[in-house]
Simulated scan of single mutants.
Amino acid sequence: MLRVSPIAIALAAWLLVPASAAAYGPKVRKLCANDYMDNCHLYRLGTPEVRACMRKAGAKLSPRCVDALIEEGHVSASEVQQRRAAAGR
């Protein structure tokens, strides 16, 4: 039986996303793939639902993913700092 790894599924999902998701650069696609699979895989990439899910999962996202999202302008560094302060981190 052919087994497909979760990484292959995530990669295929990133490659088959609609054009609106192309706004995510390669760094976010690479560094946030596991965060997406862990928290928001029930939502199609490039949709408002996945964006809302990732925002809701903010405290659970890996630092590398958050840094990539800041770098690409999907979230501001000040918003991240405010959320961390509110969470006591």
Rank of each mutant, 00 (worst) to 15 (best):
Pro26Tyr: 02
Val4Ser: 12
Arg64Lys: 10
Lys30Ile: 02
Gly73Phe: 02
Thr47Tyr: 09
Leu15Gly: 14
Ile9Pro: 03
Ala21Ile: 00
Ala21Arg: 01
Leu69Trp: 03
Ala22Met: 13
Trp14Phe: 06
Ala23Ser: 08
Arg64Leu: 06
Cys40Ser: 13
Val80Cys: 03
Cys65Pro: 08
Leu61Phe: 05
Ala8Met: 14
Ser5Ala: 07
Trp14Arg: 02
Glu79Gly: 01
Ala13Thr: 05
Asp35Ala: 11
Val4Ala: 14
Val28Ile: 05
Asp67His: 01
Gln82Thr: 09
Leu45Gln: 07
Glu72Ser: 00
Pro48Ile: 07
Asn34Lys: 07
Gln81Met: 06
Pro63Val: 00
Tyr43Lys: 04
Arg29Ser: 01
Pro6His: 14
Asn34Met: 09
Gly88Lys: 09
Pro6Arg: 13
Arg64Thr: 04
Pro6Gly: 11
Ala8Gln: 14
Lys60Ser: 15
Met1Glu: 06
Glu71Gln: 07
Arg84Gln: 12
Ala87Thr: 15
Pro26Met: 13
Met54Gln: 07
Pro18Gln: 15
Val75Ala: 04
Leu69Asp: 00
Asn34Glu: 12
Ala86Arg: 10
Glu72Pro: 01
His74Met: 13
Arg83Asn: 08
Val75Trp: 00
Lys27Gln: 07
Ala33Gln: 08
Pro18His: 05
Gly25His: 00
Thr47His: 11
Ile9Arg: 15
Val4Phe: 11
Tyr43Leu: 07
Arg44Phe: 12
Val66Gln: 01
Asn39Gly: 08
Lys60Thr: 04
Tyr24Met: 08
Ala77Leu: 09
Leu31Ala: 03
Arg89Pro: 04
Gly46Lys: 06
Ala21His: 02
Glu79Tyr: 14
Cys53Asn: 13
Arg84Trp: 07
Met37Ser: 07
Arg29Asp: 02
Pro63Gln: 15
Lys30Val: 04
Leu15Val: 11
Arg64Asn: 09
Met1Phe: 08
Trp14Ser: 05
Val50Thr: 15
Gln81Thr: 07
Ile70Asp: 00
Met1Trp: 14
Met54Ile: 04
Val4Gly: 15
Ala23Thr: 13
Ser78Arg: 08
His41Cys: 08
Gln82His: 12
Arg64Trp: 05
Leu2Ser: 09
Thr47Asp: 06
Ala87Lys: 12
Leu69Thr: 00
Glu49Ser: 11
Met1Gly: 13
Gly88Glu: 12
Arg29Lys: 15
Leu31Arg: 01
Ile7Leu: 03
Ala86Phe: 11
Gly88Arg: 10
Cys40Tyr: 02
Val80Tyr: 02
Asp35Tyr: 04
Ile70Thr: 00
Leu61Arg: 01
Val75Gly: 03
Ala68Cys: 15
Pro63Leu: 10
Ile7Ala: 14
Pro48Trp: 09
Ala12Pro: 00
Val50Phe: 05
Ile70Leu: 00
Ile7Pro: 03
Arg64Gly: 14
Thr47Gly: 06
Ile70Arg: 01
Tyr24Arg: 05
Asp38Arg: 12
Glu71Lys: 03
Leu31Val: 00
Glu71Tyr: 02
Arg89Leu: 15
Ile9Ala: 10
Arg89Asn: 15
